[in-house]
């Protein structure tokens, strides 16, 4: 553990990713208690003001403060993505470790199932869902989360299968431990670092997908601010107010960049092949 922390200090990738992610998280949490203006407050007289002329980052077509919208959007985007990844990671990991424990026909079914889920891009499954229950946070979480299940199922299955071949597992079987107990005591702890890395990277992907869904109007319902919808609304004012299209995109890119760097950095640090 201490060696890992020491290694972390020497990885610029990890550190930059961590700083960006913490900053983002900080802004998102801050938006729950404070934003410069109430994000939904319209001020038509001051609409489409460029950055610094009204508020820090200007105003949109309703005269809403862009900085406040971005802050509140950070919370909405992060929380939706987090719930989606939590859904995908928990169901996927459960499927993966149980399959590694049982193998046989279950493995065939789970792997085929993964292929099938993977064949429907989340944007399309969200559209199918939205056709009936409408867009919204729930639709986005289910569509993104379901798509992430195969990612985690495949990862944990192959990682868990490796653990099952280890000597200490054979020893545990020898002393009569149940498969469930071995999975809990040996398999899960040994694959947890890979799961953590994957969660970080998938969070980035979830933010991108959530932004796409909101852009199409399938994400969070208005007036709750979201980065994707801000971009969709900015489309009408590209010539007049290009900053409206610039800022939310920058926020998305920065968030994804930070999470990807953090994930890659974590992988470098936690990778057992790298521990000498």
């Amino acid at each position: 553990m201490r060696a890992s922390i020491k290694r972390a200090g020497r990885r610029p990738l990890f550190l930059i990713g961590l700083v960006i992610t913490l900053l983002l998280l900080g802004v998102a949490l801050l938006s729950l208690v404070w934003t410069p203006f109430p994000p939904a407050k319209m001020n038509i007289i001051h609409k489409l003001k460029p950055p610094l002329s009204f508020g820090l980052l200007g105003t949109d077509h309703f005269g809403r403060d862009v900085a406040s919208l971005l802050m509140a959007g950070a919370w909405n985007s992060l929380s939706t993505s987090f719930l989606a990844v939590a859904l995908g990671a928990s169901v996927g990991t459960l499927a993966g470790v149980v399959t590694a424990m049982r193998r046989g026909w279950l493995e065939v079914i789970v792997m085929r199932g993964c292929d099938i889920i993977f064949a429907v891009p989340p944007i399309l499954s969200a559209m199918m869902l939205a056709a009936f229950i409408g867009g919204g946070r729930f639709t986005a979480i289910i569509a993104i989360g379901v798509f992430m299940v195969p990612v985690f199922a495949r990862l944990t299955l192959s990682a868990a299968l490796q653990v099952w071949t280890r000597d200490y597992v054979t020893a545990a079987i020898g002393v009569g431990q149940s498969k469930l107990r071995i999975t809990w005591n040996h398999v899960l702890p040994n694959i947890s670092s890979q799961i953590i890395v994957q969660v970080t990277i998938q969070l980035g992907l979830a933010i991108l997908t959530e932004a796409g869904l909101s852009f199409l109007g399938l994400g969070l319902a208005p007036p709750a601010p979201s980065w994707g919808r801000m971009l969709a609304e900015a489309q009408t004012y590209l010539g007049q107010a290009p900053w409206l299209a610039l800022l939310p995109g920058l926020a998305i890119a920065l968030a994804v960049l930070g999470l990807n760097m953090l994930g890659d950095g974590l992988r470098d640090i936690l990778d057992p092949r790298d521990q000498n």
Binding site: Q235, A253, N260
Partner: peptide
């Protein structure tokens, strides 16, 4: 590669419209 993976394609589209069309 880090930056291009992180940017949403539809946002790049908007930026390209601003630059090359508008």
């Amino acid at each position: 590669s880090y930056v291009s993976i992180a940017v949403p394609a539809f946002w790049v589209g908007l930026l390209l419209i601003i630059a090359f069309s508008t």
